[in-house]
């Protein structure tokens, strides 16, 4: 389970309402982040941020129809095959099989239904199937590292995959990324977009990783670490990790945005 004790008490709520175009000035805004729970753009230990982080202050945008709406995704984008990264071309990938499952909720505790969850990762040896990854570790011809699923009516999702390996990168001397799986979620609105990384409990590289450590709030940071989940282990087949994801929630009361 996630560290947040509230998670045990969740009831099934109602999905975020579609904002009708016919009531133009009334939109329900999404909440702004709690201080320290999202990374700053400039985090100099992560060297790539130095030339890419904006230097001017961001301009606060009142949420309009543009921000509170977002696309739906066709069921045909996912299949049982896209949820199983261990045998995408019919032959078994090498490595430790694991399941990764959890729920996608909003900040109000409501399940985010029928939302697309996209993942990508390195193989068991810490190598990505990508032309720019030149790490001297073997590629696995039976592992692409690409997967996607749609959440169900409870906001639940599940993948079967291979536990990714750690790999070196050139950010600083002897830099190694802790094992991680990249997650991308669209959520119900353009304002709820989230890209994040899921880590594994007990990884000795976590304290040294500038990307994991870019978020000031340690509780928020530690929620990126999945939990080993005995309950969902597949006996004699695969170990299991649980990773719940929280998307921004709408402010409950609609209000008129002031200029």
């Amino acid at each position: 389970m996630n560290q947040n004790p509230d998670h045990d008490e969740l009831s099934i709520g109602i999905a975020a309402p579609v904002v009708p175009n016919s009531r133009p000035s009334q939109v329900t805004s999404y909440r702004r982040p709690y201080p320290g729970t999202q990374p700053e753009y400039l985090h100099s230990p992560y060297v790539s941020s130095i030339e890419r982080a904006p230097k001017q202050p961001l301009i606060k945008l009142p949420h309009t129809l543009t921000e509170v709406t977002g696309p739906a995704f066709a069921p045909a984008l996912v299949s049982p095959k896209t949820a199983d990264l261990t045998r995408q071309n019919g032959r078994e990938a090498i490595g430790e099989r694991i399941t990764v499952s959890g729920r996608v909720l909003d900040e109000n505790g409501k399940p985010v239904r029928n939302t697309l969850v996209e993942v990508w990762q390195a193989n068991a040896c810490g190598r990505y199937l990508h032309k720019r990854d030149q790490h001297d570790a073997p590629l696995d011809p039976n592992f692409t590292g690409q997967g996607r699923v749609m959440t169900d009516d409870y906001g639940a999702y599940k993948f079967l995959t291979i536990k990714p390996g750690s790999y070196p990168w050139r950010n600083h001397y002897n830099a190694w990324r802790p094992a991680h799986i990249h997650f991308s979620l669209l959520g119900p609105a353009f304002a709820t977009r989230l890209v994040t990384q899921m880590y594994f409990p007990g990884d000795p590289l976590l304290p040294f990783d500038p990307i994991f450590n870019c978020t000031a709030d340690d509780k928020a940071r530690n929620r990126l670490i999945s939990q080993f989940d005995w309950e969902t282990v597949l006996p004699e087949y695969a170990l299991a990790y649980k990773f719940d994801i929280i998307l921004r929630g709408s402010d409950e009361t609609p209000f008129e945005v002031q200029r």
Partner: peptide
């Protein structure tokens, strides 16, 4: 009840693996 939105992390250099099918 109020939960906190999951923290962002960089998309990294290899996002095409997971995302390019929708390009």
């Amino acid at each position: 009840m109020s939960l906190q939105a999951t923290t962002w992390q960089t998309v990294g250099p290899y996002f095409r693996i997971g995302l390019e099918y929708l390009n």
